[in-house]
């Protein structure tokens, strides 16, 4: 029983990692129709930025080209009693950069040009695979090649109530992830701005007629996605370290969680993420550690075949 609780709790924590990674992916798909195969890299890049801006690690400084321009170390870490202030400052500095690079520039340069209303998604799929390759290899070549430790905002504390070990990071990430996704769900469903956004996503023509600034709403979606991936980078990296190739696995798990949960529902990503994390851990503990990744993948294939809108998604008519 203790082992079951132990495995389930840490499965939920891992699941929260997948959920927070998946939510941006689902959001873009749901509201902008953009399938982003570079999503894993979108999480990796802010994580690296946070580390570069927020700490004075000599190994993760700045990419190669910046020394040509100026300062050798732009880290602004404030050493403080146990609290990761540097990390939070790095986080705050990263958000505007992410909104510009991963939100605005991504939308303007790729999505707007490749995704036409009623058109095919394949060109954008191809281009984002290229984008993922570009970001990954760029960080690898210009920045650093070995995994770097990434401190947790929640510290390294842990408790062992009744023989079950729970770390502060686990609890922190589960709570933070639930709050973030809950807030996003509330924003989309309950606020005026959010409903405008959803309306623009569901039928751009009608929304335009109704006076909703469609283009601005879509841009808002991309900005929100950029903030989400930055939060994900902050929360996920303590578990997987800051590394250039983190995006591959993260991206795969994000797709899996988003599709299983239902990509047209933001909260689908939350349920999907938790489900994937728990299934992985259960199959690792009780079936075979060799095939702990196989459970979610089989579930993914099954969901696509039987219920493409996802376990928690709502069915929708797909226009041809």
């Amino acid at each position: 029983m203790e082992q079951f609780l132990q495995v389930t709790i840490s499965g939920l924590a891992t699941g929260a990692i997948f959920a927070i990674s998946a939510v941006g992916f689902a959001l873009l798909w749901q509201t902008a129709g953009a399938v982003n195969f570079a999503h894993g890299e979108f999480i990796m890049v802010p994580a690296v930025l946070i580390l570069a801006l927020g700490t004075q690690e000599p190994t993760v400084g700045i990419p190669d080209f910046i020394p040509l321009i100026g300062g050798a170390n732009i880290g602004v870490a404030l050493p403080s009693a146990g609290l990761p202030w540097g990390l939070l400052i790095g986080f705050a500095l990263t958000i505007p950069i992410a909104i510009f690079l991963l939100g605005y520039l991504f939308k303007v340069s790729l999505v707007d040009r490749l995704l036409q209303p009623g058109g095919d998604d394949i060109p954008l799929v191809i281009a984002t695979i290229g984008l993922g390759l570009f970001l990954r290899e760029y960080v690898h070549e210009a920045w650093f090649a070995t995994p770097q430790p990434f401190p947790s905002v929640f510290g390294n504390g842990f408790w062992r109530p009744g023989g079950v070990a729970i770390s502060a990071d686990d609890i922190g990430i589960i709570v933070a992830c639930t709050i973030v996704i809950g807030a996003l769900q509330f924003f989309i469903k309950r606020t005026y701005l959010g409903r405008q956004m959803e309306a623009a996503a569901q039928n751009a023509e009608t929304a335009r007629v109704l006076g909703i600034p469609v283009n601005r709403m879509v841009l808002l979606t991309f900005a929100i996605n950029a903030v989400l991936v930055t939060i994900a980078g902050l929360l996920v990296s303590p578990a997987i370290n800051a590394r250039w190739d983190a995006g591959i696995n993260l991206g795969l798990l994000a797709f899996t969680a988003a599709i299983i949960g239902g990509f047209n529902q933001v909260r689908g990503a939350l349920y999907g993420g938790f489900l994937v994390g728990v299934i992985q851990n259960w199959s690792g503990a009780y079936l075979s550690t060799l095939y702990r990744d196989a459970g979610p993948l089989l579930l993914l294939i099954l969901v696509i075949l039987v219920r493409p809108q996802g376990l928690f998604g709502r069915a929708e008519e797909r226009r041809i």
Binding site: Q3, S10, G11, T14, I17, G277, A285
Partner: peptide
């Protein structure tokens, strides 16, 4: 005897098995 996948991020199930 426990086999772990390369670059697995969550080792709690394995560690709890070892503890037992």
């Amino acid at each position: 005897e426990i086999v772990v996948q390369p670059e697995q991020i969550d080792l709690s199930a394995e560690v709890s098995q070892l503890a037992a």
